[in-house]
Structures are given as C-alpha cells and as structure tokens.
Design a protein around this nucleic acid. Sequence first.
RNA 1: GCGGGUGUAGUUCAAUGGUAGAACGUCAGCCUUCCAAGCUGAAUACGUGAGUCCGAUUCUCAUCACCCGCUCCA
Length: 460
Amino acid sequence: MIDSMEKLVNLCKNRGIIYPGSEIYGGLANTWDYGPLGSELKNNVKAAWKKKFIQESKFNVGLDAAILMNPQTWVASGHVGGFSDPLIDCKECKTRHRADKLIEEWAFSKGQDMIADGMSDEALVKFIVDNQIPCPKCGKTNFTDIRKFNLMFKTFQGVTEDNTATIYLRPETAQGIFVNYKNVMRTTRRKLPMGIAQIGKAFRNEITPGNFTFRTREFEQMELEFFCRPGTDLQWHEYWKDFCKNWLINLGMKEENMRLRDHSKEELSHYSNATTDIEFYFPFGWGELWGIADRTNFDLSQHQKFSGEDMTYLDPETNEKYVPYCIEPSLGADRVALAFLCNAYEEEKLSEDDTRVVLHLHPFLAPIKIAVLPLSKKLSEGATQVQEMLAKKYMVDYDESQSIGKRYRRQDEIGTPYCITYDFESEEDKSVTIRDRDTMEQVRVKIEDLDSWFEGKFDI
RNA sequence: GCGGGUGUAGUUCAAUGGUAGAACGUCAGCCUUCCAAGCUGAAUACGUGAGUCCGAUUCUCAUCACCCGCUCCA
C-alpha cells in the first residue's frame, strides 16, 4: 500500500501512466491524460468490468448511449432545477452563504416562517438589501451578487448561442440507460429482473475537484441499472453489494483496503430505499469507489411523467403491472483504476541499501504482460523474434538498454508480471528464462513452449 | 470565487541585477553475462506578458498555472 499520493503521481508521470492534462500550456486544473501504459490499464479495468457485468451475466446487457441528450432528460432527472444553488459571498469576512438560506434563517430569527426557495435571484438580492440582512459571521451587510453553481457543463447545439439551443454534457451515464429502457426491453425480449450496463464519460463542474484522478470534472463511469420487481429490491441490493465486492477482490483488491458503508436514514436521498458505498483507503483517507443505490422507481417514473411514455412492466408471473424498481451500482473507472494502482504499489526493501518499487497489479490489469530483455545487445536478433511472437497475443515490451537489473526494476515499477531474458545459452538451447514479478523466481522454458506456458496466466 | 503560498532541466534542489549549476533520471559509446555497478560523452530549464534599468531568471505590475485552506458535493 502506498503512503503518499505524490509518489504515485510522480511514478505515473515518469513512466507514462498518467500525465497532467494540456501540460505544454501550463496545464488545466484537475485534468489528466492517460499515457501509453495508463490507457492500457484503464482499458483492462473496463474490460474486466464488462466481462463480469455483461459477458458472464445472465441478467445484463450492454449499452453505449450518447453524451449529449435532450435537455428535457435533465429536467426529469432533477439535475436542471435542483442543483444550482444561489450563492453569495460576504465581501467583509469572505464567507459564502446560500442566499435563500440566509433569508430563511433571518426570517426564522424574527419568528417568521419563510420559504425563499422559489424566489428569483433578483428577488433574493432585493430582499436581502431591502431588509438589511446581515452576514451571520461578521454582521456586516456587504454582499456580492448571486453566483450560481450548476454542476452541469453547458454547451450549444447548432450555430446560434441562444438559450433554446443550450444542451448539457451529461453529469451521469445513468439517464442514457433510463431513456433507452423501453428500447432495450423490447429488442432484447428480456423479462425482469434484467440490467443494462454502460461505460461512458460524464462531466460535473465540481467546485472542489482534486486528489489526483479521484475527483475530476471529466470522468468515466461504469454503471449498471438493474431493474426488478418492487419488493425484491432490497434483496437485489444485497446481491449486488456482494457481487461488486467480489469483483474487486478477484482483481487483487486487498480486503483491508476496502470497506462497505451503509448510508444512514438521514443520509439517504429522498427516493432511495438503501445505499451502500464501497470505499477504498486512499493515501488521503477513505474515499467512495462504488455507490450501490436502491433508487426505487424514481427515475423511470420521472421519465414517464415528463415524456408521457408508459414505463410500466406487465409481470407475466404475477400479472401485476408496475414501474420496475432499480438497483444502481455505479463505479468510477478512473477512481477504481487509481485504487488498483494504490493497492498494488509496494516499496520492497531487498537489502540494506536496495529497494525496489513494484506494482503488484493483477496480471489481467497489468499494462504490459511480458517484457523481453536480451542479456546483451548482441542478442537483439533472437530476442526480437521472441518479442514478435508473443506480441501477437499480448502487450509486450522490449528493452535492451543498460543493465539487466535496471531493466527488471523498470518493469517492476509498471507492474509487468513476467520478464523474459534471452541469454547466450538461448542461441543454443532455444530456451529463455522467465522471471516472476512477485516471487522473483525464475524458470527456464523452451521458446516453442512459451505460448502454452503463458496460457491462462492473465485470465480472470 | 475568496485568502495564503509556489513557479529554474523529466524529477529533487542550488546560485545570480551582467554567459544559470548539481544529483538522480534519459540518450549514445565502452565495459558488463541475470536484479538500480563502473567509465566517457550528450541533450534538456528561469510559466507568459509588460514595466524599471545600459542590462531582469533575479526588482515591480499584470496574467496564467499549480499547491494548501474556505465555500459546495444528488
């Protein structure tokens, strides 16, 4: 386990796993680009998820919905109305307040009950000025104008930049699933319970991003919306909790680095029956990896209401008609990739003055599966043949610069599970030495047997 | 967005109002025959713009970016 994020950031930058975004222009806050190795790693994480949640699942099917959606989607989901708080700052003491709350609390202190929720921004400001409402912190009355924070990125569709053409970058992939629920049900002829799984980018204009790739404004989600009969939702919630946890463990996540945290009653969203977070112990503390929420029929009902489409399901077993309940295990691809990196990072002390940094990544996740290392540059030809042979099946690296020990260390740092050394003997006996990253043990294998030797070594 | 801090090589860190140095890393060559050895050489940096000055990486201002804190987090 890693003790500081800084070490990981440096390793990622130096080895081509993750770079700061737009770096030649001085960067752009909290954007990160996956390098040659990082993109492999992230793709492997996504492939592992798809394999488990779609390919091997008897319930689930895949989907890849568009990022840009009809703006009504976000009205129905509650993202347009609900999440743009009217914030004002006190110019005197630099504190920030919600304008509506400021008014309500002021009214409450005067013994009045007041709901400022529906007021326009102008009305809020006017009310505060007219009534000389003071700052709760410093008591002065010198506020800035209202600034709105909406978590959704806006852009324009078409050539004119007027309000009618405003569309949003999706703040979650889930809605792409809900709006396609009917299509998928019809075309796959599925019965409940069934799930729709999707990987895709989402965008949130977070006020406080940070902690490397943990919270970014552009991120990739791996979401499942699992539909079931009302009343069975809590048992399915338990099912997916275990399922998700096991997926992590099978990929090498150490149990001591993770925990499941059930949301308390107060913490639950108004539409949720139960929510469990799978958290990971990052260098900065516990952080949410996977939110497994019982969303009841909230989303489908909202879309039924706003679109007028019938979202009910006629249960062939019970003859009941209902809007299905939904369990949503939602995982951040970037987050979980970061967790796997932290989980895998190890500084091993080999002797008094010799340590090696090694990523004990699960072989399925490792960006490079095998590195071919000729013992001498004079052996390039034979070693290259081995590399070319293996590259037909695996991501293979080839390195002949500097000492063999140094090359082992370089591969350890990026989590390559196997290193092959091609030595002078190899020319004679047509064999190579395979060195295991974790045990550092070596075996001699005939070149013609390499294919079968590696068979199954990277499977999940 | 506010307050504070910081911007010198890939990284860590020096020095300087007058040609910017090191270590590690990288690359090339020699040597080396299985876990960061050695030798020789090379490439690479003052975030950007303006001002003061004969001359600015150094001083001033602006700007941009990053870090920490605050505000927020379905």
